[in-house]
């Protein structure tokens, strides 16, 4: 649980810092002017929503990993043999993340076709990653191991499934963005979506790399 506590401490630190930065020290009964924090912060609500959602997902995976770390010291544990395809999958996900970043850059530079191509490429690479994960599931062992094998294998299934589901959620949003593209939406209107998609993809890449690292080294 110690890494969960560290995460919580960090999260609380960020929150407290934010609140202090937002003039939590103000003496509200005295202040008469409207300078400074006058209400809404000037960021799109979707952006704030995404960051909060990523905090929730971080909490979820931190707890899964804490559970993994605690469980491995208890008993009947042996490490999982990592199937080689996971290295390929990781590279595919890195490529997907780069493609999403390129879509964002292309949109910033006003290149509609470039943005669309990169976006579709990012989506396809992500689907390829998911397919690769399914292959990895097969290679880890027949499903009977899920039940009677080491809990490390069960953890691998659970962690990769949880990560995959979050990626599928991202693909759903990506699909909506692509369909808005197809419907002829202005690039300016799509920029926020592209930015948020790329942030989410980088985040999921980071989560995957941490999960992969845990499976490899912990």
């Amino acid at each position: 649980m110690s890494n969960t506590v560290i995460f919580t401490a960090l999260a609380s630190g960020v929150i407290v810092w934010f609140l202090i930065a937002s003039r939590l020290t103000a003496k509200s009964w005295e202040s008469q002017d409207e300078k400074g924090d006058v209400g809404a912060i000037h960021t799109a609500p979707e952006r704030i929503g995404l960051w909060i959602f990523m905090a929730v997902v971080t909490s979820l995976f931190s707890l899964f990993i804490s559970a993994y770390a605690m469980r491995m010291h208890v008993g009947a544990w042996c490490h999982i043999t990592i199937p080689n395809i996971l290295w390929v999958n990781s590279l595919v996900l890195v490529a997907a993340s780069i493609a999403m970043q390129r879509a964002r850059w292309a949109a910033d530079h006003g290149s509609r076709s470039g943005a669309r191509a990169a976006l579709v490429m990012g989506g396809m690479l992500s689907v390829a990653f998911l397919a690769g994960q399914l292959v990895a599931w097969q290679q880890v062992g027949p499903s009977v191991y899920f039940i009677s094998g080491s809990p490390a294998i069960a953890f691998f299934y659970v962690l990769s499934a949880a990560h995959g589901l979050h990626l599928i959620g991202g693909l759903w949003v990506l699909g909506r963005t692509v369909s808005r593209f197809a419907a002829g939406a202005e690039l300016v209107d799509l920029r926020l979506s592209l930015q948020l998609c790329s942030v989410y993809w980088h985040f999921l890449l980071l989560v995957w790399l941490v999960v992969f690292g845990v499976l490899l080294y912990l």
Binding site: G36, V38, A40, I41, I52, F53, V56
Partner: peptide
């Protein structure tokens, strides 16, 4: 809860009216 919670937090951070500082 997560769907609702994202709303509550984002609304407090983002949608306060003019003059409604956190400390008000």
């Amino acid at each position: 809860f997560t769907m609702g919670g994202l709303n509550y937090v984002t609304t407090v951070l983002q949608a306060r009216c003019r003059g409604m500082t956190l400390m008000r």
